[in-house]
Each structure stands twice: as C-alpha cells, then as structure tokens.
Computed example of a mutant assay.
Amino acid sequence: MNSDDANRLGTVIRSIGSQQLCPAIDAALKAVVDFDMSCAYLFRFNQPALLVHDGYNARVTERTLKAYLRGGYLLDPFYVACTNNHPSGLWRMSELAPDSFFASGFSISRDIHPCVSSHHGSLIEEIGFIVPVQARTALVYSLMRGLDKGAFEPAEMQRLAALTPVIDAVLGQHLQLAHADDLADPEESDSQLEDAFVEILQGQLTETQRYVAKLILQGHSSQSIASTLGISEGTVKVHRHNIWQRLGIAGNAELFRLFINYLVKQ
C-alpha cells in the first residue's frame, strides 16, 4: 500500500457513520477501477428499499428513481439475492440474474430501471458488493460502467474482490451507526411473496399463480420456474395460461405493464 492508498483508506475510516462515507469509498475504488456511476441500497425482505448512496451523478431521472424505490427494486436480481441470504462478496448482476432477465421488462425499462435510464442506455454493466447484515437483509454497493468503455475485466474484478473484507467491515459498521433504526426488529417471515406483489394481484389470482407471476416479472423462463417450484414445465404453462385469463392480458409484456401502472399510481 502506497501513501495515496493509505490516505484514501484513512479518509474512508474517518467517514464511517457520516454522509461522507460513500463518496470516500467511491474515491478509493476509483483508484482501483474506472466506473461511471455508483449506488448503495439497503435491501430488506418485504420492507421498502433504502437508498443509502446516490452516485448516479444526475444521470438517472427523479421519476425513474422514485418508481424503483416504490417497488421496481422487487425485480432487481441484487434485491432477490439479498433477501434470499446470498453470501457476501463481489458479484456481477449477470451472475445473479434469472435466465430470461435480460429480455425482461425490468431489464429494458426506462420507467423503473435506473441503469437503463442513464445516458448509456441499456449498454451498461453493474457489479455489486453484497454486505449481509442479518437474515434476509443486506446492503449492496454497486458500481456501473458503460459498455462503450468495456465490461469489467477479470483482473479488475479480482482487484475489487480483494477489498471485500474492508468493504464488509466499513459498511457493516456504518449501518450500525447511521442506520440502526432501519435494522431494528426485523419481522420474521417465511413468505415467498412480498406485499407489493400481493396488492397488485390480490383477489384475482391464487397464491401459487401470484408466485408464478412474480417469477415471470423477475425474469424467469418457464424452465426456471419449473425448477424453482419443483413442477413440470407443462404445469407452468397451465399456470401462465390461467394467469393471462384471470387478468385479461395476453402475455409477459402486459403483466409487466400492470406492474408499472401500479408503481406509477402510488
């Protein structure tokens, strides 16, 4: 570690518990890899996502960010990973995403996906440090770079991954100091369906159909849904057919539009 690295680390440590922490982390990580945007969210199962750090640099519209925080995050692979107790470390979104995610409405929607609403459009890669805090609760510190500069290279990922113990320690301590109220008394739940999904589809679908609809929205194919639920693809197709009939829609795109309309009306 040279003197510049030591100074940056010292700034990070001194900033724990303050609003200056995440900008200090950004500055330290910029010395390791180049990136265009950053953000940090606290994800808690069946509780609103909390934006801990806005490093979008005014490249994401307020409307998109609000829609994401109202419920768009429910479709984010990082949220799903965190609320399923994914291990800590540095992950590419592509490693966490379901098999059909990048063809899903969320992945290409400027309405609720902050990365897509940026000046880079959808040609952007997101990687994130997952920092588990407690059961079904974790903070994700994400870095994003336009693919016009090239995806994050394996050597860059290795350099960042080596910092995982420091990131875990710093952000874990920061959450205890600055966000203790947000971590207090988490509700234990074995539910697989968040309230927002229930509200959107309440009274129209059975519990199983609502869960299948959730997986569709999150970017799972019929094969992936069948594997997740331990049922046949044929049964999944029956569920899809019944969902479309009950909701009076024709397919995935219209299901996603129902979801978007719900968020916009909140």
Rank of each mutant, 00 (worst) to 15 (best):
N2H: 08
N2E: 12
N2T: 12
S3I: 14
D5F: 14
A6L: 12
A6M: 04
R8V: 04
L9M: 14
L9P: 03
S15K: 05
C22I: 08
P23L: 02
I25L: 15
K30M: 15
C39T: 12
L42C: 04
L42N: 06
N46L: 02
N46M: 05
A49R: 00
A49W: 00
G55E: 09
V60T: 14
R63I: 06
K66H: 12
Y73D: 07
Y73N: 06
L74A: 00
T83I: 15
N84Y: 01
N84Q: 14
S88D: 11
M93P: 04
M93H: 10
M93T: 11
S94L: 06
A97I: 11
P98F: 08
D99A: 13
H113W: 02
C115I: 09
H120F: 15
G121E: 10
G121A: 06
L123Q: 11
I127Q: 03
I127R: 03
Q134N: 03
R136N: 11
A138Y: 03
L139F: 01
S142G: 00
K149W: 07
G150K: 05
Q158E: 14
L163V: 09
L163F: 11
I167T: 07
A169I: 06
L171H: 05
Q173Y: 01
L177V: 11
D182I: 00
L183S: 11
A184D: 13
A184N: 09
D185N: 12
P186Q: 10
E188I: 12
S191H: 11
E194W: 10
E199Y: 08
I200L: 15
I200Y: 01
Q204L: 07
L205S: 04
L205E: 03
T206R: 02
T208G: 02
V212E: 02
L215V: 13
I216V: 15
Q218A: 13
G219S: 13
Q223R: 15
Q223W: 12
I225Y: 02
A226M: 09
G230Q: 13
I231Q: 14
I231Y: 14
E233Q: 15
T235G: 02
V236H: 05
H239N: 06
R240L: 10
H241C: 08
N242Y: 05
Q245W: 01
G248E: 06
G248A: 08
G248C: 07
G251K: 07
L255R: 04
N261S: 04
L263F: 05
K265R: 11
